[in-house]
Amino acid sequence: MSSATLVRYYAAVDAGDFDTALALVAPDVRSAILLPGAAVRGEGREGLRDYLSGRGDVVRRHVPQRESVVGDLEFVYGAVVEDESTVTGHFLAAAKIGPDGLIAGYQVAFDPELGLLPDA
């Protein structure tokens, strides 16, 4: 299993365990979630909780295909799979990890068309 904080965050989000996911995030996190036609920007853990809670009941899973840790920055690239079978697109995420080991900054871009790697 990966030790990257960002990968653990996605695993908890995908399990619907937002409390565990947000325990990996600094209380004053700054975030940008870049979606086709919209950007969701926020500050604070509760802003992320609101976003996650508002996504609806779709069964969604992040499938990391590559990850890298460079100093205090983590990067993850992967596919988003819905209902265990449909790849809806790909994401590229970066996280700044604070001295306390928590995600202090989070930026992710999702694209429903371009995939850089073949889906497994």
Rank of each mutant, 00 (worst) to 15 (best):
M1L: 06
M1Q: 03
S3Y: 08
S3V: 11
S3P: 00
Y9F: 15
A12Q: 12
V13F: 13
D14Y: 08
D14A: 04
A15Y: 06
G16I: 05
D17W: 05
F18R: 00
D19E: 14
D19T: 14
T20G: 01
A21M: 12
A21F: 10
A21S: 11
L22D: 02
L22W: 07
L22G: 03
L22T: 04
A23E: 13
L24I: 01
L24R: 04
L24C: 07
A26P: 00
P27Y: 12
D28W: 08
V29Y: 04
R30F: 13
S31N: 01
L35R: 01
A39M: 03
A39R: 07
E43G: 14
G44K: 12
R45V: 05
R45F: 08
E46H: 02
L48S: 01
L48R: 05
D50N: 10
Y51K: 02
S53E: 13
G54K: 02
G54V: 10
G56V: 06
D57C: 02
V58T: 14
V59G: 00
R60F: 15
R60K: 14
H62A: 02
V63F: 11
P64I: 14
P64Q: 11
Q65E: 10
R66I: 12
R66T: 14
R66D: 07
E67S: 10
G71P: 04
D72E: 13
V76K: 03
V76I: 10
V76W: 08
G78Q: 03
G78N: 05
G78V: 02
D83A: 10
D83C: 00
E84H: 13
E84Q: 13
T88F: 10
T88Y: 05
G89K: 12
G89D: 14
H90E: 04
F91E: 03
L92S: 04
A93F: 07
A94R: 07
A94F: 10
A95M: 08
A95N: 11
K96T: 15
I97K: 04
I97F: 12
I97G: 09
I97W: 06
G98R: 14
P99R: 03
P99F: 08
D100P: 15
G101D: 08
L102G: 03
L102E: 02
A104M: 11
A104N: 13
G105E: 15
Y106R: 05
Y106K: 09
Y106L: 15
Q107Y: 09
V108L: 06
V108W: 06
F110M: 02
D111I: 01
D111R: 02
P112R: 15
L114H: 04
L114V: 13
L114F: 09
L114M: 04
G115W: 04
L117C: 01
D119N: 13
D119E: 13
